[in-house]
């Protein structure tokens, strides 16, 4: 698994301007709640949304979710000033495009952390490469700040106006997804996304389609995805958790490999018509570790619901 072992499978976007959406969000059971100032808040509602934000951070964590705020980089100073308060786990940068922009965001956050009694470097960044320029500059953007934890294509299908091909695949997205997963691996960050297909649009889909998109997404290297509706959260959590059958198979591979190497068979082992190499076994061990981390994360959220404080793993 690349980067941090933090389990962040589901990222529920909630417009800060909609108090009922925000207050209902914790009940959805997401790993992360993203309080949105950028995409789903009308221009006229932004000042009021910013004013209310600091009071929403702690209540949003009532069921054990982490809390990020999505900002508009064109309004970075106002959005960050409203967002960076104790209790904030990170910032999602919509339409991230240039390294200079990310460096400027990093500097503002550092200043706010210092002035507001927060641990330096505690606020992480997830960068949404939603524009063509942002994707083109992906490597430079991803390495512009040590705070960057994750990369996503966000709503690139809408922002870049990418539409379904006759096959049902969204034009250019397979290329962009592979590019993002490669960039994330190269920069030690975590790729976030799901493999959406028509008629899904803009992170919006039925629960069944969301589950399928998450499962396909996990298969090509994503670790979690954003979504818009609360009913998409359970399928994202499920889709990005290794299924029990995979975990059982992984245990079987690890045990067979351990047994075979202990008996002196060598580094490459044939077990049940499969060749096992150290890389394959490491991949299996990663699956087991991820499943355990997901399980721990779920127990932590369940404890939070019961009112038992537990640290986020």
């Amino acid at each position: 698994m690349t980067g941090s072992p933090k389990v962040r499978r589901s990222w529920l976007l909630c417009p800060v301007s909609h108090s009922e959406r925000v207050s209902d969000a914790p009940a959805a059971g997401g790993d992360v709640i993203v309080l949105d100032l950028a995409e789903f808040v009308a221009e006229a509602g932004k000042p009021a949304a910013r004013e209310s934000l600091s009071e929403l951070l702690v209540p949003a964590k009532s069921t054990g979710a982490e809390v990020f705020v999505q900002i508009d980089p064109e309004l970075m100073l106002a959005d960050l000033s409203a967002s960076v308060w104790p209790g904030l786990d990170g910032i999602v940068v919509s339409r991230a495009e240039t390294p200079e922009q990310v460096a400027a965001i990093d500097a503002i956050i550092s200043d706010l952390e210092s002035r507001r009694g927060m641990l330096p470097g505690s606020v992480e960044l997830v960068l949404c490469l939603e524009t063509a320029l942002g994707n083109h500059n992906g490597y430079e953007v991803a390495t512009a700040s040590s705070r960057t934890w994750g990369l996503s294509l966000g709503r690139a299908d809408l922002v870049m106006d990418l539409r379904p091909e006759p096959s049902g695949e969204i034009h250019l997205m397979q290329y962009l997804m592979q590019r993002l997963v490669t960039l994330a691996s190269a920069t030690g960050t975590v790729p976030l996304g799901a493999w959406w297909r028509f008629p899904d649009r803009g992170l919006l889909a039925t629960p069944a389609n969301t589950l399928a998109a998450a499962q396909r997404g996990r298969a090509i290297g994503f670790h979690g995805s954003f979504c818009v509706q609360p009913d998409q959260v359970p399928p994202l959590n499920a889709g990005f958790t290794p299924p029990e059958s995979d975990v059982a198979a992984a245990h079987g591979l690890c045990e067979a490999y351990a047994s075979a190497t202990a008996s002196g068979t060598g580094a490459v082992v044939l077990v049940d018509d499969r060749v096992l190499t150290p890389d394959i076994v490491r991949q299996a061990a990663n699956t087991i570790a991820l499943a355990e981390a997901c399980s721990t994360r779920d127990r932590s959220k369940a404890a939070a619901v019961e009112g038992i404080p537990m640290p986020v793993p």
Binding site: T131, A132, N135, H136, N137, L172, Y175, L176
Partner: peptide
């Protein structure tokens, strides 16, 4: 993909 992305960028 590279060419289209360059054009769009």
């Amino acid at each position: 993909g590279e060419v289209e992305l360059a054009a769009r960028a």
